[in-house]
Design a protein around this nucleic acid. Structure first.
Length: 557
DNA sequence: CTGGGGAAGGGGCCC
DNA sequence: CGGGCCCCTTCCCCA
């Protein structure tokens, strides 16, 4: 007895889930594009991926071997066994596919491409030599859509270290891994992790950041030793171990010779058994320490502590002045939080943002009807949330954004909505006045710049003036679009997205993005409390807590 | 329920 | 560009 079309239906379901990001547990970074997928599917299709996915939730691919557009075809092929119509698969793209397939050790796809090239009278490029052997597929070459053989994938891993192909790249990360101690190797370079220098420079006049990828609820920031988020919902087996961060932005070493044959018969649910059962779409807003056993309080805190996910653009619209000039976090951080956790608890990440900062970028609600990550619209415009099937189309679209356009829309919305947000009643919160350049009780709003206090005659003038401040934040985050005044700050911010925490506590395994924080943390273990309140003698491990404490002394009861 | 303390995250900025 | 520090903020725990 056999259920007909079972495999087809199963694959169909998986592909639909991928499109929706449902249960996706791995992110593949190709240049500046992010792709979500299922580890099991990747592992079942590629020996290369099989070697990576158990350890990493974030995989960077060598852009010299595979481009975003090619990888998109590769991923489509993995999930469907088909390539798009042969008409649209040019010889050049077949060649690129072959290179990518070889690099990724997708032997079936490589063989398919090779046959396609042969059929077209082409000689496979040298790149396909990466694949030392492939198993022939029975269905041969046929015109029309290329189809995956129905035979099981036979893994015939070669022993070449494909990563070496990227070795020529400066500061190459891809061969680097977290060491035994769980420390990121010293020579990691943010730029390498991060995709983008090119896109970084392509900040559009509108301030729109080109992020050719799926923000789509990906929470790149949640990556401390464990977690409860989409990207963190990983197998417990890979949890904590202070030395085993879940995602590395590097491409680990390729499959070793030791495991080849296993690849053919991996139990289909080997890893899914270890995955959390709950859908990863809506991570809980609170810590979930309970599953961590006695790993240690401090550790557990770090493990599940939260957020900041660029992704579903659920955002709280704020007054333009507030959001752009006063609250640097709303756009990138708080927003991300909302996006990832929906519950709306404002995240600690947004913490620093309430102060000042002339952050400028405005996230927009996704356009009606746009469902991030669904279907072919894998490339998402951060500003408007619109999805596009290709990076080229996205880039073209982003160029159409202008700051004025955003302003116009803002204006329209202000007119429609009366300007204030319901939760931003100036009467209730004097800070709102400040942020808007207004003063409580003033009938006529003063159009003051919140950055330099310059007074403008009207709102339009103020906006024009405010633009000048934006230039002071020339460093955009390629993931969330937030702008920074200094490159170093942006780099540090990106580190939080990727969860790169090079500084590990030897006592409990907690990891930190900053050495200073590790030093601070170590006082927890040493019991050192160097900060003493001169008023009451209270001692604190953190200076900031002493300051907070002092406020308690000084503030009226 | 509330307030204080502990611990942690993030951004700004200076060196 | 990284380190170090400051500030703001959040979250959790506990009394």
């Amino acid at each position: 007895m056999e259920q007909q079309n079972h495999f087809k239906q199963l694959l169909l379901q998986l592909n639909q889930q991928r499109a929706k990001g449902y249960l996706c547990d791995v992110i593949i970074v190709v240049e500046n594009a992010l792709f979500r997928a299922h580890k099991n599917v990747l592992a079942a299709s590629s020996v290369y991926f099989k070697s990576l996915v158990p350890h990493d939730n974030l995989i960077n691919l060598d852009t010299e071997m595979v481009s975003p557009s090619v990888f998109r075809q590769v991923l489509d092929f993995i999930y469907t066994g088909r390539l798009s119509s042969s008409d649209s698969v040019s010889e050049h793209s077949v060649s690129s596919l072959l290179t990518a397939a070889s690099y990724l050790q997708l032997t079936e796809l490589a063989a398919l491409c090779r046959r396609k090239l042969k059929h077209n009278g082409q000689t496979p490029s040298s790149s396909d030599k990466l694949t030392t052997s492939t198993s022939p597929t029975p269905n041969g070459h046929t015109p029309g859509p290329l189809r995956l053989s129905s035979t099981p994938l036979i893994a015939t891993p070669n022993h070449q270290h494909h990563n070496n192909h990227s070795g020529s790249r400066k500061g190459n990360l891809r061969n680097q891994r977290w060491g035994q101690e769980g420390r990121l190797r010293e020579d990691l370079s943010e730029e390498e992790v991060f995709i983008s220098g090119s896109r970084c420079a392509s900040l559009s006049p509108s301030g729109g950041i080109r992020v050719n990828g799926l923000a789509l609820g990906l929470d790149l920031s949640k990556r401390s030793p464990s977690g409860s988020t989409a990207t963190e919902e990983v197998s417990p087996s890979s949890l904590p171990q202070s030395s085993s961060p879940h995602s590395s932005s590097v491409s680990p070493t390729p499959p070793t010779t030791a495991e080849p044959r296993e690849n053919q018969r991996q139990p289909p649910n080997t890893s899914t058994d270890l995955l959390p059962r709950a859908p990863c779409k809506r991570p809980r807003p609170h810590r979930e320490d309970t599953n961590l056993g006695e790993t240690g309080k401090a550790l557990s805190k770090g493990l599940v502590k939260k957020p900041g996910a660029p992704g579903h653009e659920k955002l709280v619209r704020r007054d333009r002045v507030t959001s752009e000039l006063e609250d640097g976090e709303v756009n990138g951080e708080e927003n991300g939080q909302d996006q990832s956790e929906e519950s709306g608890h404002s995240g600690s990440e947004g913490g620093g943002g309430k102060r000042n900062g002339n952050t400028n970028y405005i996230y927009r609600q996704p356009q009606p009807g746009f469902e991030p990550g669904v279907g072919d619209n894998l490339y998402v415009c951060i500003p408007c949330g619109k999805g596009f099937p290709s990076s080229e189309q996205l880039n073209a679209h982003v160029d159409t954004h202008t700051q004025d356009e955003i302003y116009l829309e803002e204006e329209e919305e202000e007119e429609e909505g009366g300007g204030y947000q319901k939760d931003e009643d100036p009467d209730a919160d004097p800070n709102v006045y400040a942020s808007r350049g207004l003063e409580p009780g003033a009938d006529e709003p003063r159009h003051c710049c919140t950055v330099c206090s310059k007074s403008c005659k009207d709102a339009v003038s103020l906006r024009e003036h405010e633009k000048s401040h934006w230039l002071n934040r020339p460093f955009p985050c390629n993931i969330c679009g937030k702008l920074f005044t200094q490159r170093g700050t942006m780099t540090r911010h990106m580190r939080s997205h990727l969860g790169l925490k090079p500084f590990a506590c030897e006592e409990c395994g907690m990891r930190f993005t900053r050495q200073y924080r590790l030093a601070e943390h170590m006082r927890v273990h040493s019991g050192e409390k160097p900060y003493e309140c001169q008023l009451c003698g209270g001692k604190f491990t953190q200076q900031r807590n002493l300051l907070s404490h002092l406020k308690m002394h000084t503030s009226p009861p």
